[in-house]
């Protein structure tokens, strides 16, 4: 038994293709990239050792600092939004819609699988002001407000990016958190209710602590995704206006 399932040749045959592909195309370039940080130059002119100069430059270059600050702001905002809205949705599914939530879960999950570029172009049109106003500005007019040039200023462009990325992924986090909430035993909630725990206290002292682990993992997944963001912002604003949304 040990001999057959521990056969070195078989292990190599099964493992090598994946390991080689992965090492050559991901691990090596990553180390290569790390190595580049200590050199100056480019592939054509060749490289010279520059020590920590690049890092100093990174932290003193105002553009880089702005991009880093933007990434952090984006990650914090969107992660909070994704997980919070997802959690509210999951609560809605579990405690209000219950059995009937299947269809709504399916519908809210759908934007997750949509291509980012398509969603970005769609949102560009949704928030448009000129030459013709999109649904959002039309709605603002209908409600008696002033139309907003969403992509004209950094702060409003950021708002659109945040709204778009939360719209895109709230269904995903709802489903993720739903799986955790459903696991909370009905008995626990019932007995807390019998003990007189009302809505807020029930949520605060029973539901929240019991769904804490899955909430934390959702936060980690979300941070992991938002810190690496590229395509949604590139396709929506390409870093503009100016470079106010450059990550």
């Amino acid at each position: 038994m040990k001999q057959v399932l521990g056969d070195r040749k078989t292990i190599a045959v099964l493992l090598a293709p994946a390991l080689v592909t992965y090492s050559v195309v991901m691990l090596a370039p990553m180390l290569w990239s790390l190595g580049y940080t200590l050199f100056a130059g480019n592939p054509v002119r060749g490289f010279t050792w520059s020590g920590l100069d690049n890092l100093t430059k990174l932290f003193t270059d105002p553009k880089a600092r702005q991009a880093i600050a933007f990434t952090i702001k984006y990650a914090l905002t969107v992660t909070t939004g994704q997980v919070l809205v997802g959690y509210l949705l999951a609560l809605l599914f579990v405690f209000f819609l219950k059995r009937a939530s299947g269809v709504i879960r399916t519908l809210t999950f759908f934007p997750v699988v949509l291509p980012t570029v398509a969603v970005s172009l769609l949102f560009e049109k949704l928030f448009e002001i000129a030459p013709t106003s999109g649904p959002v500005n039309s709605l603002i007019t209908a409600l008696g407000g002033q139309q907003v040039n969403w992509f004209g200023a950094g702060s409003t462009a950021f708002a659109v990016i945040a709204i778009m990325d939360i719209w895109r992924s709230m269904g995903f986090y709802a489903v993720l958190l739903y799986a955790g909430l459903v696991d909370i035993s009905e008995d626990v909630i019932e007995s807390a209710r019998l003990d007189g725990a009302g809505g807020w206290r029930l949520a605060r002292h029973i539901v929240l602590p019991m769904s804490w682990p899955v909430l934390i993992s959702a936060l980690i997944f979300s941070i992991n995704g938002t810190l690496k963001v590229f395509d949604s912002i590139y396709a929506l604003t390409a870093g503009g206006p100016g470079n106010q949304t450059t990550r």
């Binding site: 405690f95 219950k98 059995r99 459903v182 035993s185 007189g196 725990a197």
Partner: peptide, 23 residues
Amino acid sequence: TRPPAGPAATAPGAPPPAATPEA
């Protein structure tokens, strides 16, 4: 995702558990 282990537990004819959290 698992189906919620919700109202199925109540016996037929019994009132469904309150949808609002208040007792």
